[in-house]
Every structure is written in C-alpha cells, then in structure tokens.
C-alpha cells in the first residue's frame, strides 16, 4: 500500500513550477537590465524585448500560482507516487551517470558502460549478452556517425590511449 502513497501532491508541484517559471522570469529581467531596456540610438535597445518578456513571464506565473493555490482545497490529486518516483529515478539516475561519464570518457565508453550496467542490473540479462550488445552498439555508432556521415562523436582518453583517433 505504501507504494501507492502520494510522494508529491499535484497542488504542491503546481505551486513549485509556478515559482520556478516566475524565477526564470526574474532572471530574464535581471539579464535584460544589463542592457539598454529602453529606446536606444537605433530604436528599441537590446534589452527592450527580453525585459518585457520577463515581466510577462512573472505575470503569467503569478496567475498560475494563484490558480494553483485556489484549487488547493479541491480534491488531492497526486503528482507522483512512491512507486512511480522509484521507477523514474531507477531510469533517470543512470542517465545522469551516463552524461557525467560522457563528459570525461567520451560518448563511446560511456554508452558501453551505461548500456551494460542497465541491462545487467536492471534488465537482469546475462553479463556476456549485455556487454556484447553494448559493444555492438558502440561499433554501430562508430560506423554510422564518423564514418558514414562524417560527424565525429565525443571521444575521451581511452580512445586516445588505444590510438583509435
């Protein structure tokens, strides 16, 4: 039963999102204010448009905030349950790991490690199968992108060590 419990309610997520979009609006205003937000030598300055967009973002976010707060009393709709959050994290955290690995080791090595990890520990596949498939994907990446389409992918120290590039 615990799994079906609401981790985050829809109402609080609505409020949080409205606050974040409002924050983005404030950041846009702040960034625009570094430039000419009024009338320059050649018409509207470069801060003119973003400054006004920023203000409108804050106004629209405030509307969303008020609507979310007003609706709070009605029902308690769920944004995400414990079980849902667990499966999202189980899928999302390895993606985060994949991005971090890519930055240091390049896309090929990161893809091999990520695919093998997910298939073995989450998919429950035999290590030999998983690692073999991961390597096959890396070979396919190499063939399709740098060789056929002449689009090089991000490589890291291991490729350099092996003299692949």
């Amino acid at each position: 039963m615990d799994n079906e419990r609401a981790l985050i309610s829809r109402a609080s997520m609505e409020v949080a999102t409205a606050l974040v979009t409002g924050g983005v609006g404030a950041a846009v205003i702040w960034g625009a204010a570094e430039h000419d937000i009024g009338w320059g030598d050649s018409g509207p300055g470069s801060g003119y448009f973003p400054f006004r967009i920023g203000i409108l973002i804050i106004l629209a976010s405030l509307t969303n905030l008020v609507l979310a707060l007003r609706r709070r009393g009605f029902g308690n709709e769920v944004f995400v349950t414990n079980a849902q959050m667990r499966s999202v994290l189980a899928f999302g955290l390895p993606i985060l790991g994949f991005v971090v690995l890519s930055l240091f080791l390049g896309l090929y090595v990161a893809a091999i490690l990520y695919l093998a990890f997910v298939m073995i520990f989450q998919g429950g596949y035999r290590p030999l199968f998983a690692i073999g498939l991961a390597f096959a994907v890396a070979v396919a990446m190499r063939l399709i992108f740098p060789i056929w389409f002449k689009v090089p992918l991000l490589t890291g120290p291991i490729e350099a060590l092996l003299g692949l590039y």
């Binding site: 899928f91 390895p94 993606i95 994949f98 991005v99 890519s102 896309l107 893809a111 990520y114 695919l115 997910v118 298939m119 989450q122 998919g123 429950g124 596949y125 498939l133 994907v137 990446m141 992108f145 689009v151 090089p152 992918l153 991000l154």
Partner: peptide, 21 residues
C-alpha cells in the same frame, strides 16, 4: 523495454552532441 529504453537514451544524447559538438 529494458533494452530499447536505454538505447533510445543513448541515441538522444548522441543527437544532442551532433547538434553543435
């Protein structure tokens, strides 16, 4: 999906890289 899902992830990030390296 345990195979297809992660493969799509890899393809998406390869795509993100090819946009502007």
């Amino acid at each position: 999906f345990a195979i297809i899902g992660p493969l799509i992830v890899v393809v998406c990030f390869i795509g993100a890289w090819t946009v502007g390296a």
